[in-house]
Design a binder for these strands. Sequence first.
RNA 1: GCCGGGGUGGGGUAGUGGGUAUCCUUGGGGACUGUGGAUCCCCGGACCCGGGUUCAAUUCCCGGUCCCGGCCCCA
Length: 434
Amino acid sequence: MTFERLRGFRDLYPEDAEPKSWAFSIAQEIARSFGFRMIDIPSLESLDLYRLKSGDELVGQTFSFTDKGGREVTMVPEATPSVVRMLTSRKDIPRPVRWFSIPKIWRYEEPQSGRLREHMQFNADIFGVDTPEADAELIGLAATILDGLNLQGNYDIRINDRKLMENLLHKMNINNISEIFSIIDRFRKTSHEDFSSMLKQSGVPDKTVSDIVSILEHQINRGDLKNYLSSYIDIDQNLGQTIDRMETTLSIISQYTNSRIYVDFSTVRGLSYYTGIVFEVFDSKGELRSILGGGRYDNLAKLISGQDIPAVGFGMGDVVLELLLKRAGLWKSSSDKPRYYVCTASDDLRKEALEIVIELRKNGFIATMDVAQRNLSAQLKSATINSSDYAIIVGKKELETDQVTIRNMSDGTQQQINKMKIVNEIKKMKRHAD
RNA sequence: GCCGGGGUGGGGUAGUGGGUAUCCUUGGGGACUGUGGAUCCCCGGACCCGGGUUCAAUUCCCGGUCCCGGCCCCA
């Protein structure tokens, strides 16, 4: 009998688990440098928490079941409701709140490129303020993380604003906003012909349809927004304010990163709870699904708890990120520490060898020795296979004068060093190498 | 849930209606009881499952299953 991995789940071997761990540790480090605090959410929640937000439709795409107490529960399909639940059940947390988490999340759907049934997600939110500064800080965090992963130039940030879009559509005499949003959400995946006919079917007049297509297909750079839109519609005071706020946000974000950032009116995001700015990051070549996405959701806390708490957040999954990092040649664990393999020339010297291994480990070095009772030749072979940088050979002859041999595994050069000062000697060698 | 394309050792592959299923790689061991990656030798390991056609199926047909990709949906 053999057991296979479940559909949509992954086994991560060292060559994948280590780079993934590296990527998330960078994200975590950068979030902390922004003053974000780490939280952790449960893996299982009441199914009602998601019904509340998006109705029964989402429920069919969750890993959910009835527990032994008869409760309907689900493996969490996203982090945000749990985070909001945690925030609103504590009243003593000073605002603004900056929180991040790295949960695993689950969704029951057909796996495809960039989408699996289980994945890990980096999630960050700012609660308690509704300002362009907060929006920019959060998007700035996302960009700084990607830059920290050395992805500069490999991604674009697309920004839009739900309020602006609603305003725009109203001005075009469109009132079935959410229906139109879900069509707009598919703009980049459908042909213009199909897209236009979908809009027409939803009651949008022909002339307006062509305007919408034209507006959606352009990328608008910072500073051009008002000018661009004025050729399609009148800009009243209300719309003007929304545009000004967006320009402010864009301007602040440009302080965080040199990455390409533009307004893209086709980015509306499917989730119904967004109330203001929305954004998505894509690979520049446009080959992959979105790397991360998020936006402002000022009404969710009220829905969950009755408390009025503005919020902006984003989530970044590890699946697309992995594809992108692999394409950029950055999928490796960044441990640049040299690895030492301590060998014994004869089996009765294991005690001395282990002393050296322990001493090296205490001083922060990566040190290994044979545990298979193998001879020197086999130990060196093993050191090679484990990509050790140095082998330290403990032998009787050298020990008579308290020396051990250190062998550089890349060029084969050897030298004798004093066993008692081994840590200092190694540090000295390292400095020379640098 | 729906649609398309695929399943030959751990990974990558060749091939065939009939004999011990090819090659590379990986793994284990040895030549080598104080010096590794080379070389040589040995060993382990596969035709997804079920049914049908046939004297005979890994090969052809059907169904299932799994993988990959896409749709739906998007957190």
